[in-house]
Simulated assay, not measured.
Amino acid sequence: MSANAILLTDGLLTTTDAKTAHGLIRGTDRYTVTGVVDAPTAGQDAGAVLDGQSRGIPIFSSVQEALSTLNQVSYAIVAVATSGGSLPPNMLNDIKQCLQGGLSVVNGLHEFLNEKPDLVALAHEYGGTLMDVRRPKQRHELHFWTGEINEITSPIIAIMGTDCALGKRTTARLIQEACSRHNLNAQMIYTGQTGWLQGVSYGFIFDSTLNDFVSGELEHALVSCWRETGADVLLIEGQASLRNPSGPCGAEFLVSGNARHVVLVHAPKRTYYDHIPAWGPIRSVESEIELIRCYGSSVIALALNTEACSRDEAFAFQKQYADQLGIPVLLPLEEGVMPLLPIIQALTATAHAH
């Protein structure tokens, strides 16, 4: 039975900075989320705020309100992913209140709680623990790339995006669940802190891994997962995008992770990387598909993030891209990912045949 947890979002729940909270509200095997602390949306259901689906997770205006209402909460999770990974200004106060309530605090940011003596003292005094998920591994725990990746015979699919915070992890999780419902053993490789928080068994935290070992950690996760689970298909959760200048990422999945197939996630109405004009315009889907082809991999489906779209616009974009590209175009949140399933079944059948 997973332990009960509340999510701390510092008022950011309705923004992309709270994508960690969004993932945990949609589902986690590691914790049972029983409440969210987010003053601007207090009194509502977290699922309803997120995507209109009520999930029985109440939102509270303060830590005190949450702890006085809920029973047997063991953990508080810092459920935001800010640019640069720093703690939002008011979060420290919430964390202190959680520690004083006897909770343990799990933190996925680059700013480490264990480096704050006052928090360490509070945890010690009230019997909680501080866990910094993104703390880099020790050198002896890291793996260098070996070439063992080439032993994997199951298809490897990378879920990549044209920008950050588009829903790559959510899309990967939905694909995994769809495969499971059709007796395909799909395993996901997490590459960020939210995947770990959701209880995914294999992976590594990309942006806190020393650059020399990124390729090796990716390979080690894929090879270990394939050998130990007998996965029919391996899904790599992507990070950032190949051309986001603040942190270009993705070549490793194609080159070192040998992902020959890509599901590309794109937001038709997003104009600039991370919504910041100074970072430059997001390139066309066609040019991204061509770039991925240059790496020797093919885009097998496009998934749309329909932020700022009406329902009619979402379906219009779906039709437009399907006509333009000639591949399945998914609306993961509106319709799920089932059109991708025949493609994955064909890939695994081919792999088994060999």
Score class of each variant (00 low, 15 high):
residue 144 F to H: 00
residue 82 T to R: 07
residue 198 Q to N: 11
residue 101 G to S: 03
residue 206 F to T: 09
residue 40 P to G: 09
residue 296 G to D: 04
residue 296 G to P: 01
residue 303 A to C: 12
residue 178 A to C: 14
residue 297 S to M: 11
residue 322 A to P: 01
residue 42 A to E: 05
residue 142 L to M: 15
residue 59 I to N: 02
residue 240 A to Y: 00
residue 245 P to I: 06
residue 298 S to Q: 15
residue 120 V to H: 10
residue 106 V to A: 07
residue 51 D to Q: 05
residue 85 G to M: 05
residue 7 L to A: 04
residue 116 K to E: 14
residue 71 N to Y: 02
residue 155 P to I: 11
residue 241 S to H: 09
residue 160 M to Q: 08
residue 335 E to H: 13
residue 105 V to R: 05
residue 150 N to P: 12
residue 12 L to F: 10
residue 73 V to E: 03
residue 150 N to E: 15
residue 249 C to A: 08
residue 287 S to R: 14
residue 354 H to V: 12
residue 285 V to C: 06
residue 249 C to V: 05
residue 137 K to W: 12
residue 284 S to H: 03
residue 248 P to F: 03
residue 195 G to A: 08
residue 217 E to H: 06
residue 145 W to S: 13
residue 37 V to K: 04
residue 121 A to G: 11
residue 273 Y to D: 03
residue 253 F to G: 03
residue 2 S to A: 15
residue 209 T to G: 06
residue 144 F to N: 03
residue 291 L to Y: 09
residue 153 T to R: 15
residue 124 H to W: 13
residue 221 A to D: 04
residue 38 D to W: 02
residue 110 H to M: 13
residue 326 G to S: 04
residue 309 C to R: 05
residue 302 L to E: 06
residue 2 S to K: 15
residue 102 G to E: 02
residue 116 K to T: 14
residue 180 S to M: 12
residue 179 C to G: 09
residue 15 T to E: 08
residue 91 M to S: 07
residue 175 I to M: 06
residue 27 G to V: 01
residue 129 T to I: 15
residue 168 K to M: 13
residue 13 L to W: 08
residue 186 A to C: 13
residue 273 Y to C: 09
residue 140 H to G: 00
residue 164 C to H: 00
residue 40 P to W: 04
residue 182 H to I: 01
residue 71 N to V: 09
residue 56 G to W: 08
residue 84 G to H: 01
residue 114 N to L: 09
residue 294 C to N: 09
residue 313 E to P: 03
residue 259 A to V: 00
residue 190 Y to N: 04
residue 278 A to Q: 09
residue 166 L to N: 00
residue 53 Q to L: 13
residue 305 N to T: 06
residue 349 A to M: 13
residue 169 R to H: 15
residue 252 E to G: 07
residue 84 G to A: 11
residue 351 A to H: 08
residue 172 A to F: 04
residue 335 E to L: 14
residue 83 S to N: 12
residue 102 G to D: 05
residue 153 T to Q: 15
residue 73 V to K: 04
residue 294 C to L: 10
residue 88 P to L: 10
residue 22 H to L: 07
residue 314 A to L: 00
residue 62 S to I: 07
residue 45 D to W: 11
residue 109 L to E: 04
residue 210 L to C: 15
residue 249 C to D: 01
residue 339 P to Q: 03
residue 102 G to F: 03
residue 347 L to R: 05
residue 146 T to H: 13
residue 154 S to W: 07
residue 255 V to T: 11
residue 121 A to T: 10
residue 309 C to F: 07
residue 335 E to Q: 15
residue 219 E to F: 07
residue 111 E to R: 12
residue 350 T to L: 14
